[in-house]
Simulated scan of single mutants.
Amino acid sequence: MGAAGPVGQPTRGTTGTNRLRRNDRWIAASEAFRTASDPLVIDLGFGASGVTAFELAQRLRRKRADAEVIGLELDPARVATAQTQLEEVRAGRTPFAADLSVSFARGGFEVPLPGARRPAIIRAMNVLRQYDESDVADAWMRVASRLAPGGLLIEGTCNEIGRVASWVDVPPGGVPVRFTIALRLADLEHPSVVAERLPKALIHRNVPGERVHDLLVALDREWDHAAPLSTFGPVQRWLATVAALKAQGIPVQGSKSRWRLGELTVPWTTVAPAS
C-alpha cells in the first residue's frame, strides 16, 4: 500500500490458539523485553483473530506486570474482529484476564504508535511468506527502524499448529544477529522438518552450497546418531544432538534450559545466504 495508508501486503490471516507459543516464550525470555524501560510488544500482522495477541500478553505479564501488547493489522475488518474479541475479554467471558494490557489498531510496516513510543519487541510471524526474497532486507530495515534502542524485530514462520517454527532476531540496524529453530520434540522424526517453515530469507536456500542446508544436514545426522538415547526420551536425544553440533564447532548459543524446549539458536552468520 502507498504512503497514505498502512504499508505492506495482506497476509492469509491464518491463526489459531497456541500457534505462536514457542515464539511467545522466546520473547518473554529475551533481554530486549526483560530490560526494556517500556515493555511494549507489537504483534504485527496478527491475522484473522486477536488470539495470538491475547496469548502473548498473558504470557508476558507473568514476567513483567507492566507488559503491553498492541496488535496491528492492515485489514480494518480484522482489527474490528479483534476489538470485538477484546470486548469479550474485558467482560470476563474468556479464559484471559479481563484487565489484560492489549489493544488493536490498523497498521503495517510503518508500525504507527502515538507520541514518541517505540516498542521493545516487534513480532512479525508468518508475515513475509508471500513476499519475494528480495523484499526481505528492506522490510527488516523498515520495521526494525521503529524499535527502541536495544529492541528486537522477531521475524519468522511456523506451521499451522505451532509445533515447527523458526525465526530471526533483528536489532534496530536491520541486520539479523540470531537464527532460531523451535520444535516439538515428541514424535519428531527429523529436525529438518523445519525446512518448510524457514523464514523467507532462508526458505529457498535449503540447497547444497548454502549454510542453512549444511546446518540442517548436520542436525539430522546428529539426531540419527543420538537415536539410542530415545530410550530416555526425546529431550535427552535433542540435548545430545545439540551438544554434538557444538562440539563440532558450530557456534550454538544458549544453555541447556533453552535446548530442553526444543530450541537451537546460532548466529545469523552461520546460516546467512551465501550470496
Score class of each variant (00 low, 15 high):
47 G>D: 02
48 A>K: 14
49 S>A: 11
49 S>T: 14
49 S>W: 00
50 G>C: 06
52 T>Q: 15
53 A>W: 04
53 A>H: 01
54 F>I: 09
56 L>M: 13
57 A>T: 09
58 Q>W: 11
59 R>L: 13
60 L>E: 05
62 R>F: 04
64 R>D: 11
70 I>M: 12
70 I>V: 15
72 L>Q: 10
74 L>R: 10
78 R>M: 09
81 T>W: 00
81 T>I: 14
85 Q>C: 00
87 E>Q: 14
92 G>I: 12
92 G>L: 10
92 G>Y: 02
93 R>Q: 13
94 T>M: 07
96 F>Q: 01
96 F>M: 08
96 F>A: 04
96 F>C: 06
97 A>S: 15
99 D>S: 12
102 V>M: 14
102 V>E: 13
102 V>F: 09
104 F>S: 10
105 A>C: 07
106 R>C: 10
108 G>F: 00
112 P>M: 02
116 A>V: 12
120 A>V: 13
120 A>G: 06
121 I>K: 06
121 I>A: 04
125 M>N: 14
125 M>Y: 04
125 M>V: 15
126 N>T: 10
126 N>F: 01
128 L>W: 02
129 R>E: 15
130 Q>P: 04
130 Q>N: 15
133 E>D: 14
134 S>L: 06
140 W>E: 13
143 V>C: 02
143 V>S: 03
144 A>E: 02
148 A>W: 05
148 A>E: 14
149 P>Q: 10
149 P>S: 10
151 G>M: 01
152 L>E: 09
153 L>F: 11
153 L>A: 08
154 I>Y: 01
154 I>A: 07
154 I>H: 07
155 E>S: 15
155 E>D: 11
156 G>D: 05
156 G>I: 04
156 G>R: 04
157 T>Q: 14
157 T>V: 12
159 N>K: 06
159 N>Y: 11
160 E>W: 13
162 G>Q: 06
164 V>Y: 06
170 V>H: 09
175 V>L: 10
176 P>D: 08
176 P>T: 03
180 T>Q: 12
188 L>T: 03
